[in-house]
Design a protein around this nucleic acid. Structure first.
Lengths: 218, 218, 218, 218
DNA sequence: AATGAATGAGGGTTCATTCAT
DNA sequence: AATGAATGAACCCTCATTCAT
C-alpha cells in the first residue's frame, strides 16, 4: 500500500483526502444553512459534500460540532472584511464611516446567513471552540467602529455588541427556508440602521452600550 | 343569561369550555413561537395549553391553520396599537413621530415575534383567513407613518413593508433559546432604527420602498 | 311529562326516536361497510346516520357490537331469501336447483358484502348474539340445498358450510375500498361455482363436507 | 471470492447483510399480509423480520413500495408454477386440465393470499415496477388455459381474469384473523370452481370473459 | 479512513372511546 | 337520550447517531 512508502508522515499527517473531505463538508453545510436554514438533514449535507454520511461523524462528533465549525469559518471571513475596512479608514480618516458601511453590507453578503444556527436553542454561543474567533471578530469590528467614532461620525452611546446583534438579526435567513425576496430588504434595513448609528444621535437609547461579551452575562 | 333572551342561537353556539381551550391553545402557541420558533412540536403546545394533543387537531385541521390563527391574533393586537398611535398623532401633529416610536416599542412587546412563522416557506401569506387582518394592519401602520411623514418627521423613501419586516427581524426571539439578555438589545435596536427612519434622510437607500405584499412577490 | 301519563310502559319502552336512531346507525354502517370496507371510522358512520358520534356508543358498547348487529341484520335478510327459494322448490321439484341459483345471486346482491367485517381478526363469529341468526341462516340454506339434492341436481359431497364460505369469499368487497369492476365478476364466479356444485360431481373433493359449525372446531 | 475477479463491480454491489435484510422484510410482509391482511403496521413487519422499523424505510421508500415488492415476488412464484403446468400439458395433451388443476392448488399454497393488497384502493396495479411481472403471469396462465381449451377440457366462455380473480378471492386469508380452519375449505372450493370451469359448460355466464387488465378499466 | 446500513426516538396525524353539557 | 368535545394510544415516517464492513 502506498502508506508504506511514506511511513515517516503517517502518524501526524492528516491524510490529504481527509482534509479535503472536512473542508467540503463545512462548505456544503455553510451553503445549505443559508439556503435551507439550520435544519437541513446531515445526510443531505453529506450528499452535497459528496461523502458518506458516516464521514461527517468521523470529522465532527455531532451536529453541534459541525455547526460550530461553520460559524467559526464565517466569523473568520467577516473578521477579514472588518480588517479591510480598518485599512481603508486608516488610509483616509474621512472614509471611516464609509468603511463601516461597506463592511456591514459586505458582511451581510458574506453568507453571514450561515450563522443562523446560532439562533437555535441548542446552540451554545460561548463554546470554547468559538472563543478565539469571536474575540477576533469583536476586536476587529470594535477597531473599525473606533475609527468612525474618532472621526466624529459614529454616535458614542453604542458598542460592538449593538452592531453585531442587529447585523445578525437583520440578515437572518428567515428560519425554515429561503425567502428570496428577503434580500431586497436586507440592505435597505442595514442602511437605515447605519443612518441611525450616525452622529449626532437623534434620540436617547435605553439600556447600556453592550459588547458581545455582555450577551453571556444574563 | 342572554341565551335565554336569544334561544334561537342555541344550536350554533360553541361551547364555553371549547372556546376556552381554543384560546388557550392559541395563547400557548403564540408564546412558544416567540420562545422556540415556528417549529415547536404541537404536542408541546398542547401540553403547555393543558389539553390533549388531539384537541389541537380538533380545533385546527393542521399545523398551518393554527399558525394562521396565531398570526391573525397578533396582527389584530398590533393593529390596535397602531390605531392608538394614530389617535395620538391626530390630537397633536407634533407628536406624530413620537406616536410612531411608541407604537414600534409597544408592538415589540406585543409578542410580534410570534409572527415568525410567516417567514417559513410553507406559510401562505395570501390565505383568505389572513386577508382582512393583514390589510387592516398594513393600513393602520401606513396611516400612522403618513401622519409622521406629513409632519415632516419621517423620511419619504420608505414604506410600511420596510418598517414591518425590520420590526419583525429586530424583535425576533433568538428562536428556540432562552437568551433573556436579548430583550436588552431589542429596544436599543428599534430606537436606532427609528433614528434612521427620521427625516432628513442621511443616505440613499438601495431598492424600492416596499409594502407587505411585496414580500411574496418574488 | 308524558312519561307520567303512561307509567306502565316507562321502563321497557325504548323511545321512538332512539329506535329510529339505532336503525339509522345500523343502516349507515351496512352501506359503508360495503362501500369502504370494514375500517370506516365510526365518526363517519355517525355522520352518515345523522347522529352524534357518542350516540353510536349509547346504542352499541363498542365497535364490535355494532358490527355484530350489522352482520345479524344481513344474515336475517339472506335467510329470508333462502326461505323464498325453499318455497319455490317446494312448488316445483324440478325448479330446485334453479331456486338455489337464484338464491345465491340474490344473496350476493343483498349487501352480503356488508358481512366483510366477519373476516377481520377481531371479529368473533361465534359470539352469542349471532347464534340464532346463524343457525336460522344455516338451516334455511341447508333446507334449500336438500331440495336440490333430493332432486338429484346437487352433488352429495358438499354441505352448507361449503356454500356459505365460498359465497362470502366470492362476493367479498375487496378490502379497503370499492373496486366497482368487481361486481362484473361476482356473478360470473358464482355461476361457475354453482356449475361445479351440480350433480354429477366431476371430481373428488379433498377434505370433508362442512357445516358452518365446523368453522369453529379448529 | 469473485470480488477479486471482478473488482470493477465493487462499488455498486449491495452488501450481503443488507440483501438478507431486504429479503427478510419481504418475506415477513408476505406472511403477514396473508395472516393479517394488507393493513399490518409496518412496525410489526419490521419486528417479525427482526430489524428496526427504519430499516424498512431504508429499503422501501414507503408502504406502497414494499407492497409492490411483495406482490411482484408472489407473481413470479406463481408464474413459475404456471410454466411447470405448461410443460406438463405439452408433454401429454390429455393431461392439460389436470395440469391446470395442479397449478391452481399449488398457486393457492404459494401464499397467493399475499397479493391481497392489490385489491386496496391505494394500490396502483399499473405501476411500472409491476408491469413485467403481471404480463408474464397473465401470459403463462393464459397459455396454460389455452392448452386445456385446445384439449376440449375447458369451457370457452372464460378468460384469465376470471380464473385469477376467483383464485384470489377463494384463497383469501380471512384477512386479519387466524382462522386456520379456512385452509380446509380452500382446496374444496377451488376444486368445485375448477369443476365448474370444465367443458362442457353447464350454464350461461353473465358478463364477458375478462382479462386482468379489465379489472381496473372501470 | 470511509462507507452503507441499521437503529430508536420523536413528530404529525387519525381514531376508538370517554366525558361533560 | 343525545351531543360536541376531549383524550391517549397507535401508526407512519424522518433523522441524528452508531455499527459493521
Amino acid at each position: 500500500m502506498d502508506t508504506a512508502t511514506e511511513p515517516q508522515r503517517r502518524a501526524t499527517r492528516p491524510r490529504a483526502d481527509a482534509l479535503r473531505n472536512r473542508e467540503r463538508i463545512v462548505a456544503a453545510a455553510r451553503e445549505m444553512f443559508v439556503e435551507y436554514g439550520a435544519d437541513v438533514p446531515l445526510d443531505e449535507v453529506a450528499r452535497r459534500a459528496g461523502v458518506g454520511n458516516a464521514t461527517v461523524y468521523r470529522h465532527f462528533a455531532d451536529r453541534g460540532e459541525l455547526v460550530r465549525q461553520v460559524v467559526r469559518t464565517v466569523m473568520e471571513r467577516v473578521t477579514a472584511l472588518a480588517e479591510q475596512g480598518i485599512a481603508t479608514a486608516d488610509a483616509d480618516e474621512g472614509a471611516a464611516y464609509g468603511a463601516l458601511r461597506t463592511f456591514v453590507h459586505a458582511a451581510a453578503e458574506e453568507r453571514i446567513g450561515a450563522m443562523c444556527p446560532i439562533l437555535s436553542p441548542e446552540f451554545d454561543p460561548f463554546h470554547p471552540e468559538l472563543l478565539d474567533a469571536r474575540e477576533q471578530l469583536e476586536r476587529s469590528i470594535e477597531d473599525l467602529m473606533e475609527r468612525a467614532r474618532a472621526a466624529g461620525q459614529l454616535r458614542t452611546d453604542i458598542a460592538v455588541g449593538d452592531l453585531m446583534v442587529a447585523l445578525s438579526q437583520l440578515t437572518r435567513p428567515l428560519p425554515g427556508t429561503a425567502c428570496p425576496s428577503m434580500d431586497r430588504f436586507i440592505h435597505r434595513h442595514l442602511q437605515l440602521f447605519l443612518d441611525g448609528l450616525m452622529a449626532p444621535a437623534r434620540s436617547d437609547l435605553p439600556g447600556e452600550a453592550a459588547t458581545l461579551q455582555d450577551l453571556r452575562q444574563d
